[in-house]
């Protein structure tokens, strides 16, 4: 009797062990995103309600490696991420290189229900955000900057400025600061002379720059007075203003507008569930919900009516924020990104 009970227990344990991983695999969707306030907002707006609806769990990874992580996984034939969020500038190149699933839009939502350029072959827009300038009102009291281009004016605003360690945005702003109108920026940047001109402008402030890499850094740089002003993603500055009464201020003129994208790596172990998640986020009322937690706008056309009233004036696309705004040109960065990034890294090392 005793031995039978013992055997039974062992059998039960063995069955549980055998069943456990399989069960866990079906129940879990792994998402890799950029962390910080943005991922927290996604968690509240999308992961939790979707998980409840489907009876699954989310396995959240935080990474700033972006496409490199995906490429390493796909090349090693060991893909563990089911969905990944991607920078706009990377998604086209990654699509060409064949490491992302070419999306079947019949499983998500009609392509024309998205804002122009937000429904890509390998990436679906999640939200609209702005690359903006922010400063600490405790430090800059009089004569505050009125445009992102104040970055390049070290006479009027001396001191260190925070900028993202990336070629994208910085080269556009350098040209704008050098007198190129926003609608001409990509035309000029496509010529070797234009690139030289952008780097020459960056040279003038090279020693005044503190480079940041993670989106959570700019508010820290401002809070610790390490910089007088910094570029940032608008939500990362708005959230501390709204929730922690941080003395920060956003400068919108000459902002650059981008989409956050989501993609499925080729070989994603739970493709079906990944598609269901994309379809869930693409529903207008769901897409707008992110705005409750971070002031990023929806990418689905019909979602605007669901955006909370007090979020609308904080969005990068609010009418009075659009002065000299520049939408990022994804095709340009897909074509020239590799060369410009190399040149930027070499310039940085000098």
């Amino acid at each position: 009797m005793k031995s039978i009970g013992c055997l039974g227990l062992i059998a039960l344990a063995a069955a549980a062990i055998a069943a456990w991983p399989a069960g866990a695999q079906e129940q879990q969707l792994t998402i890799a995103s950029a962390g910080g306030a943005w991922q927290a907002a996604q968690h509240n707006a999308w992961y939790t309600p979707f998980a409840q609806k489907m009876g699954i769990k989310f396995n959240e990874e935080e990474t700033s490696a972006g496409m490199a992580r995906v490429q390493a996984m796909v090349q090693a034939h060991n893909v563990t991420d089911d969905v990944v969020t991607v920078d706009t500038a990377q998604v086209l190149a990654a699509c060409d290189s064949g490491i992302l699933v070419r999306l079947d839009w019949s499983r998500i939502a009609p392509r024309d229900s998205f804002l122009p350029g937000a429904a890509r072959d390998c990436g679906m827009g999640l939200d609209v955000y702005g690359d903006i300038l922010a400063y600490n009102t405790d430090v800059v009291k009089s004569n505050p900057p009125t445009s992102v281009l104040a970055l390049f004016d070290t006479k009027r605003w001396p001191g260190k400025r925070g900028m993202q360690k990336i070629a994208t945005n910085n080269l556009e702003w350098a040209l704008e600061a050098d007198g190129v109108p926003p609608d001409q920026v990509y035309k000029v940047l496509a010529t070797p002379q234009g690139v030289d001109r952008a780097f020459a402008k960056l040279d003038t402030i090279k020693h005044d720059i503190v480079w940041w890499q993670a989106g959570a850094q700019p508010p820290q740089l401002l809070a610790s007075n390490e910089v007088v002003m910094t570029t940032a993603w608008n939500g990362r500055i708005q959230n501390p203003i709204d929730h922690e009464h941080a003395p920060f201020k956003i400068v919108w003129a000459n902002e650059i507008i981008e989409y956050d994208m989501i993609s499925i790596p080729k070989g994603s172990p739970r493709l079906d569930l990944a598609y269901k998640y994309l379809a869930y986020v693409a529903q207008p009322e769901n897409n707008a919900r992110l705005g409750v937690f971070i002031p990023y706008g929806p990418v689905v056309k019909d979602a605007t009516e669901f955006v909370p009233k007090d979020t609308l004036p904080k969005l990068p696309t609010a009418p009075d924020h659009m002065k000299d705004a520049l939408p990022i040109d994804m095709e340009f960065w897909a074509d020239y990104g590799q060369d410009l990034t190399k040149r930027f890294n070499d310039w940085l090392a000098k």
Binding site: A93, D96, S97, G98, Q338, D339
Partner: peptide, 12 residues
């Protein structure tokens, strides 16, 4: 077979 991009990248 999706290797074109890698050729382009290497040549670049």
């Amino acid at each position: 077979n999706d290797s074109l991009y890698n050729v382009a990248k290497n040549l670049n």
